[in-house]
Nucleic acid binder design. Structure first.
Lengths: 341, 341
DNA sequence: CCAAAAAATGTTATCAGTAACATTATTCAG
DNA sequence: CTGAATAATGTTACTGATAACATTTTTTGG
């Protein structure tokens, strides 16, 4: 391995001079700079970052902690984060928690021992607070993405979930739907809570009956959606909903699969809307009406906030960026309402 | 920051003893181990990995260089790689090259200066060779994923592209298609070449005319597919294909969009098959007949090969893992063949 | 042409661990 | 109970780069 001293010796200068050339710090005579640079080139020298980090206390690496890179929402978050990180001279470490608090904790410990200057964090749920406290103790900057965590006050980039829910709901209501089912996400995830609340508000605002039988707990998975619809199917006919609002796309897809299984047509028998969009690049016939999240922006802005924080260019006070969802109306919610009692 | 010497002082031992406790090396009396561990716990001590790396020359970080995490194929590659890396105590640095050789070169230099023990590498194209030579010079292990690079002999995980192509082609031919167009990928990417060759072989084997007008250069993008079909549309009727074999899904989707634009129906007017599958989790109505790649395996196995190589547990000789594609027949290729001259 | 200022370069110590060797404590056979 | 073997722990030096301070060289104004 070529070290800075090898370069120094060969160039006939001190290690410090080489260091100055590399970091463009201090004053260096043009001729020595050239000489040193030539030797660096010749010897194919690349500074050892471990040694650098040891003194500088920084690694130019960010950690990205998400539930699952395989979820299209997060692949775009990752891409946005990576792009911004790259722009600013940082790199990105990827981690999937699968929504598992223990994995999350493991990863955080990993990150603590690992060279990471800061962390982009999509929390598993409210109980991630304890894990985050570890970061706070160790004074590692982090930014929350998508989900906020009660009791944790930092920079965060979140979605206006209320707005998205409200607009989806009003879209359904405008179509004449009155019996709208809610497929909820886990109550300990902030986004799920916001969507739940906004669902209630929308129903109240339009003076629609809120039927507890139509509000089903789910877990943001296809299976959760499937099971929830099974429960809906056991309701008496006059309670059965004409529309479903699913708190995320997996719930919606599970729901649709179950409905189709049972011979229901969408949107003719039941309309379905949800949060999160499909992959726009490989889905030829997008079908779902959705509140699409600006996933790329989540990552991009998140990385920016984080790096500003790391480099002490951020104001003391935590910043909260709230992004607007985009409502995309598609076939799954476009049909005359049947079965209006 | 708590250092090993802080622990040592508080525990009344030397730094070396603490080091031994942490690394479970050498002989330590049970009582001192307990004592030291207690202090470590109390002080919330986490070893500084920069200092560690400085002597150990390893960082337990792998680089993952892919064209675009946003491509569903690679999100699953990334997930597979991350899972395996995690299992083996490594982490993953993510990078998107967008198929740009310069970005690729930049990233590699980045990686060289960065703590990375090895690299999972999806090459941009054959000219990535130069970039890879840099890695070889610096003696950094890497594994090629998906695309091989002529002149580079290392561990690689690739797909049996010939088999996939052949099976898709025979499927079309069995349906009675004789005029099958080929939407190629770039000729300087190994996978595109293999698919091209296998297309020719399949045509020859079944004694079908190979019409150069039906073989269109593309670039693995939707627009490439779109443009290619525009050229097909300018052919005389008796040359127009009854089926299209697209070398990847983006070409296929671009092609379908163009065809639908022009009022063609798929598969009734033209059948379409391609490599790569849609996102199975959010696409409600998968439509395309495809040769699906075991993307997760790419990453998982690739990471394994790489780590074995890093830890000198691999045989000297480069290993080549060839994975089999899975043919999934769907609507896009299922219709009686019209227009058979 | 000289002294003071500025520029250029060098020396030493340090970052947080750990390898290599050194020392002290303990065990155990005879 | 002794000395050799082994276990337990400590010291010192080193990893590669850089901060802080020191020294030498060059520039510049009077």
């Amino acid at each position: 391995m070529v070290t800075i001293r090898d370069i120094a010796k060969k160039a006939g200068v001190s290690a410090m001079t080489v260091s100055r050339v590399i970091n463009q710090s201090g004053n260096i005579k043009e001729s020595t700079r050239k000489k040193v640079e030539k030797v660096i080139q010749e010897m194919n020298y690349i500074p050892n970052s471990a040694a650098r980090s040891l003194t500088s206390k920084e690694t130019k690496i960010l950690g990205l902690l998400i539930t699952d890179i395989t979820n299209p929402l997060f692949t775009h978050v990752a891409r946005g984060a990576e792009d911004k990180a790259r722009e600013m001279g940082y790199r990105l470490l990827l981690s999937n928690t699968d929504g598992d608090l223990h994995k999350e904790a493991d990863y955080l410990k990993f990150f603590l021992s690992t060279p990471v200057d800061g962390i982009l964090f999509e929390a598993c749920n409210d109980r991630s607070k304890e894990n985050l406290n570890l970061l706070i103790e160790h004074d590692i900057p982090f930014v929350l993405l998508d989900r906020s965590v009660p009791g944790i006050h930092t920079d965060q980039v979140i979605l206006d979930n209320r707005k998205g829910t409200f607009e989806l709901m009003e879209h359904l209501i405008k179509q004449g739907h009155k019996k709208i089912a809610l497929l909820q996400g886990p109550a300990d995830i902030s986004t799920a809570r916001s969507r739940h609340e906004a669902y209630m508000k929308a129903m109240e605002k339009h003076a629609l009956d809120i039927n507890p039988h139509l509000m089903l707990a789910g877990d943001f998975t296809q299976n959760g959606g499937f099971q929830a619809v099974l429960r809906l199917l056991s309701l008496p006919d006059d309670e059965f909903p004409t529309a479903i609002f699913a708190a995320n796309i997996f719930l919606a897809i599970g729901a649709i699969k179950c409905l189709r299984n049972q011979g229901y047509h969408i949107p003719d028998d039941v309309a379905v809307v949800c949060f999160d969009d499909v992959d726009p690049f490989t889905d030829l016939d997008p079908f779902l009406t959705v509140a699409a999240q600006p996933a790329y922006q989540f990552g991009y802005i998140g990385a920016q906030l984080l790096i500003e924080r790391i480099e002490n260019k951020a104001p003391q006070k935590p910043r909260e960026v709230i992004l607007a969802p985009e409502i995309i109306i598609r076939k799954s919610s476009l049909a005359p309402v049947r079965n209006v009692n």
